[in-house]
Design a protein around this nucleic acid. Sequence first.
DNA 1: ACAGCCATGTAACTCGTTACATGATTAC
DNA 2: GTAATCATGTAACGAGTTACATGGCTGT
Lengths: 195, 195
Amino acid sequence: MSQELPVTSYALLGLLTFGDELTAYEIKQRADATLRFYWVSPATSQVYSELARLTEHAFVAATTRPDDGRDVTTYAITDEGRAALRVWMEETPTGFPVLKHPVLLRLLVGHVSDPARIEEMLEEYAGEARRARDELVGVRESLRGADSPGEAFHHPALVADWGLDYFADEARNAERTLARLRAEAGGSEGHEDRP
Amino acid sequence: MSQELPVTSYALLGLLTFGDELTAYEIKQRADATLRFYWVSPATSQVYSELARLTEHAFVAATTRPDDGRDVTTYAITDEGRAALRVWMEETPTGFPVLKHPVLLRLLVGHVSDPARIEEMLEEYAGEARRARDELVGVRESLRGADSPGEAFHHPALVADWGLDYFADEARNAERTLARLRAEAGGSEGHEDRP
DNA sequence: ACAGCCATGTAACTCGTTACATGATTAC
DNA sequence: GTAATCATGTAACGAGTTACATGGCTGT
């Protein structure tokens, strides 16, 4: 009954399945630390509105408690929420990944731009991919101790390992393409058939 | 003057830089054949509305010509369009790729689902990634003959080669993760410390 | 005769973003 | 005292989607 929620809703709901109760603010942080790499980094305002919707559906329960004078609201997943997440996982089609890759988009139309600019872009991107990988290494390390089969962070660890490979592959592809472009530029100045 | 267009606009504009003049319908097909893999597959209706906007900006020129009785409109990039594309390429930040990966999202919360369902999902995805790669092989083949440095499809060929690697890596990661899950399930039934 | 492709749009809607606003507590 | 972080939202907007509508031409 009702798989009519956007995927991001289920994603946020999923962040609450690790045994703790979080504020919207903390959920946003958790999303930035993990979801960001392979789904999205929802805007803070969206986190609040999705939580409001999840509360309406009774998939999460909000608890408002005074904390040092001010009121703080924490959210916990409910049994209905867990059931809904399970139904979504098992009965809705997974769908194929969507990749929005501005580097590849710009490379595609590289012939309208300065070759040096394209090379610069690839170099920058290789660096960014390596930095993203380094950040993920940090995430992966933080899972150690509870990442064995059956433990709480086993699946997140599998995801992180996949991500580590992905970013390494991206950096490698950027560097390989860069090397090809440089070899061409160096091999013959401007034109082909010049001995 | 005006980099205020959405990236998809420039993407469609870029599809018109390969020396031909296309109908909206054909642009949609070209997008489905190439852009789809690393940007988006815009809805047909969006192709029409983006082309209308690009025409307003004089980045493309529409030519309506009767063809077998009915009127057919083709679009060609203008000099202004080429200049705008170049400015966009060289003066706006490229941005980091956004990956919406439903397989990784579901794997992350795998502990709320049936393990068999997760394995099934990974198996399916590995197959889909291989099929996507096969389709890209077809695209890559179609570029042969004009893919050398300096030729029209050199950059698209670089992109396609990158994509071939990407999909192979995805299939490999899916299979590796699947193998890990199966090894765990087979190695010890349910719990850990049982000899 | 009918399905499928070619070709062109309009209308309604939703997801998600940016900008804005507020205020309290903590660290320097 | 002032900057950063914690915490919570509202409002306006834009990109992109689905659903709908139309009609001619092409192959069987």
